[in-house]
C-alpha cells in the first residue's frame, strides 16, 4: 500500500505526520515500512528519522550535445524543441541545459544524426535505514529547475524494496512535483490547518488528488484551535473524512523544532497514529 502525505500549503505538518506514522507502524505494528521523502527541493524527513545512509545514486538529465563536424545549422533541433532549450545563432547551435526537459526529441529529429545526449546531474537519491524502517530520499542540486525526474527515481527505489507500506512525504504546492509524487498512490492524506490559507490550499490539493488523479483522500487537521471551523465545514460538505486532529500545542512545536518526533516526545499520541493507519487501510481495502 502506498500512502502519500500532501497538503497544498507548506508548513502544515506533512513531514511530522509522515515520520510519526512511519515510526509508529514500524515500532508498534511490526509492519515493514518504507518512508520516502519526495520533497527533493527541501527534504526534511531525515532530520527526524536520523537514518544511516548506506547508498547514494546520482540522477541525471540527458541533454543534447551537437557534433559541430556533422551539424549543418539547419535549425531543425531548435524548431522541434518546445522548451527553447536550443537556439541556432550565427550558424552555431547553443544549448541551454537548464531549460532542457531531456525529452530526446531533438536527437530523434536531427537529419544529420549530429546530436548525442550527455548526462547532467540533477541530484541524488539516497537509501538508508533508521528506527526499523527503510528510508529513501531525493536531494535536488541547487540551481536545478526540474524536480520530477528525481521524484520518479525516489519512488522507483521505494517500491523496489518491496515493503508492506510505503509512505511518501510530498512537496508542497499543486503542480508537477506534487502530481509526480501522488501518481499511483493508493491513498492521499492531506495535512492542513484551520486557517484561510490552509483551506484554500487544501481545496487546490484535493482537486489534484481526488479530481485529477482519482485517489481516495482524508484529512489531518493540524494546529486545531488556531483558526475557525471553515476547514471542517468544507470537509463535511465534500464528504472528506477528518481522520486526525492535532491541537495547537507548544510542546509539539518545541519538540519539532529540535528534530524530535511526537512518538518520542508525546507517547500519548501513538494510539492516534495507529487509529489513523487503521482508517486509511480500511478506506483502501474498501
Amino acid at each position: 500500500m502506498i500512502i502519500a502525505i500532501a497538503s497544498g500549503k507548506g508548513g502544515t505538518g506533512k513531514t511530522t505526520i509522515a515520520t510519526n506514522l512511519a515510526i509508529t507502524l514500524a515500532a508498534d505494528v511490526g509492519k515493514r515500512i518504507t518512508l520516502a521523502d519526495c520533497d527533493v527541493e527541501e527534504p526534511n524527513a531525515s532530520l527526524f528519522l536520523k537514518p544511516e545512509i548506506v547508498e547514494r545514486e546520482t540522477i541525471y538529465n540527458l541533454v543534447p550535445r551537437v557534433d559541430a563536424a556533422l551539424c549543418t545549422s539547419c535549425g531543425r533541433c531548435a524548431e522541434v524543441c518546445q522548451y527553447n532549450a536550443l537556439a541556432v545563432i550565427k550558424g552555431k547551435v547553443l544549448v541551454f541545459d537548464q531549460l532542457c526537459h531531456g525529452c530526446g526529441s531533438c536527437t530523434l529529429q536531427c537529419p544529420e544524426g549530429a546530436i548525442s545526449e550527455m548526462p547532467v546531474p540533477l541530484g541524488v537519491v539516497e537509501l538508508g535505514q533508521g528506527r526499523g524502517l527503510h528510508f529513501v530520499q531525493g536531494v535536488m542540486n541547487v540551481g536545478v529547475t526540474m524536480a520530477p525526474p528525481i521524484i520518479r527515481a525516489v519512488k522507483q527505489q521505494a517500491q523496489t524494496v518491496g515493503q508492506n507500506v510505503v509512505i511518501l512525504d510530498s512537496p508542497p504546492g499543486t503542480s508537477c512535483p506534487v502530481v509526480e509524487t501522488l501518481r499511483d498512490a493508493d491513498y492521499c492524506l492531506m495535512v492542513t490547518e484551520p486557517t484561510p490559507f490552509g483551506l484554500h490550499d487544501l481545496k487546490m490539493a484535493i482537486q489534484v488528488a481526488r479530481n485529477e488523479l482519482g485517489l481516495p483522500v482524508g484529512v489531518v487537521l493540524n494546529r486545531d484551535g488556531i483558526g475557525n471551523s471553515a476547514v471542517e465545514d468544507y470537509c463535511a460538505a465534500e464528504n472528506i473524512p477528518i481522520l486526525l486532529k492535532i491541537p495547537l500545542d507548544r510542546r509539539i512545536a518545541r519538540a519539532y523544532s529540535d528534530g524530535e518526533t511526537i512518538y518520542d516526545a508525546l507517547p500519548e499520541y501513538r494510539e492516534r497514529f495507529l487509529a489513523l493507519y487503521q482508517a486509511i487501510s480500511q478506506a483502501v481495502t474498501q
Binding site: 507548506g10 508548513g11 513531514t15 520533497d39 527541493e41 527541501e42 526534511n44 532530520l47 527526524f48 535536488m140 541547487v142 540551481g143 536545478v144 529547475t145 526540474m146 524536480a147 512537496p171 508542497p172 504546492g173 503542480s175 512535483p177 519539532y256 523544532s257 529540535d258 528534530g259
Partner: peptide, 29 residues
C-alpha cells in the same frame, strides 16, 4: 517555497531576498 523552478523564476532580477526562517531543524536546513 522550495528551491526549484518557480523559486528561481521568483529570484531572477531581484535586488534583495528577505528570508523568513523559523528556528527549527527543518527551518535551519
Amino acid at each position: 517555497p522550495g528551491i526549484g523552478c518557480p523559486v528561481i523564476s521568483a529570484c531572477s532580477g531581484a535586488d534583495l531576498a528577505i528570508l523568513v526562517v523559523e528556528p527549527t531543524v527543518s527551518g535551519e536546513h
